[in-house]
Design a protein around this nucleic acid. Structure first.
Lengths: 233, 233
DNA sequence: ACCTGAACACCGTTCAAGT
DNA sequence: ACCTGAACACCGTTCAAGT
């Protein structure tokens, strides 16, 4: 009765003293751990089992907070999109302001190519993605693009930006394989037998990319001026 | 010495009589089996192990003919692209002829959405893909598009066509999940709090797609007229 | 109600050892 | 030289049983 019991004084935490406190499992905690693993070791190490180990639990527990792997990937991507700089800057040209936003979006994906692939394949609806859409629509509206065009143009703009990020990103992610792939395509295009593929042969120089900045700028301009100039059927 | 030996008369095939003859393993045979499994049971059953079983061998044997799973997927897709109708038809308008080709490309991918995803993520260089590029370049050249623009435009055209195929295809592939996804995005967009996402709220009707045909046509026109009107920097 | 151990049903890829 | 059995090192997801 008068026994001084350390564990009573310390309360329910007494047996957490030795091990680093195991943080309570939350959806955000899981997504955070997933991003950490991705940055440290690449997307292919981001698995339910590995994450469970990281969070000191069993894989089944994660399913209380995320529906499946696809949903986890989408959540990771949305989290990352929080880094996009949506401040359009103070250029007096709305195209320039819009380009600023798109470029920031592109940079974030470019630095995380394996997540960029998620954006290509999954339909997103997280708050940060919506914020990007909101910002793009805002600039299009300021530029006076009719709503019907703007609604479809935002899709194309983000699609093209995402695809370029994937394309370039994959290269730096796995430089040797990409180099091999690239020179393979390069070889194929360069050696395209002029009798089978005359047009490819005639365009071989133009097909091989050119400065990435120029190309991105050109694509952006194509979409904007095309969308402005093409009425809805 | 005078023994009549059936197996000698039948030659090396004598012991193949009972089981259906196991065809020699070839790259084409593997790709063909992969497409058959995909059509019958979906892309996620197309695995090295399953294919090996199908071909009556061990998984290791497949690696003699394909480098890895990604290469197999690319080979399947290229095979499929052989179905694209590259005959541009006889319209007097080159845009119409080009649209014909793009539409056929789109239809083939649309019917095979899980392979369409491959086109979005992998750099292709198979003969049938090159034939598509060749046909598109041919029409752009007939339309008088300068080579520099055409080289970049073909990328955008195929990218946008591929992405739409993925988007629509995924819906019909897994109708219930897609319906859930769709109404989720629909709900998010429709309920987008007008104070947080005023532009999304203002564009909600326009963002929700509209008739697929109209949209595809509009996107095509945007790209063509945008590319024609935007000189290379 | 919330959480999880253990199991189910698989994977891709490599390589030593066979023919 | 060509082929492959067997192993290595993993997966996602479910569900009965615990607390």
């Amino acid at each position: 009765m008068f026994v001084t019991n350390a564990s009573v004084r310390l309360g329910p935490m007494h047996n957490r003293r030795e091990r680093p406190a195991k943080p309570a499992l939350t959806r955000d905690g899981i997504v955070g751990a997933a991003l950490a693993v991705m940055r440290a070791e690449g997307m292919d190490k981001v698995t339910m089992r590995r994450l469970a180990k990281e969070l000191d639990t069993g894989p089944a527990s994660l399913y209380v907070y995320v529906k499946d792997t696809e949903e986890l990937h989408a959540a990771m991507l949305d989290e990352l999109l929080g880094e996009v700089d949506l401040d359009p800057g103070d250029s007096s040209d709305w195209r320039e302001r819009l380009r600023q936003v798109i470029t920031s979006y592109q940079r974030v994906l470019h630095d995380n190519p394996s997540l960029a692939r998620v954006a290509l394949v999954t339909r997103l609806s997280g708050p940060h993605y919506l914020a990007v859409v909101e910002a793009v629509l805002g600039q299009l509206a300021e530029g006076g693009m009719p709503k019907a065009q703007a609604g479809w143009a935002v899709d194309m703009l983000l699609l093209v930006a995402t695809a370029s990020a994937v394309e370039h990103g994959t290269q730096q992610e796995n430089p040797s394989a990409a180099a091999a792939n690239h020179s393979q395509l390069e070889r194929v295009v360069a050696e395209a037998p002029a009798d089978t593929y005359p047009n490819i042969a005639a365009h071989s120089r133009e097909l091989m990319g050119g400065p990435a900045g120029n190309r991105a700028r050109w694509m952006f301009d194509v979409l904007i001026s095309g969308a402005l100039g093409t009425p809805i059927p």
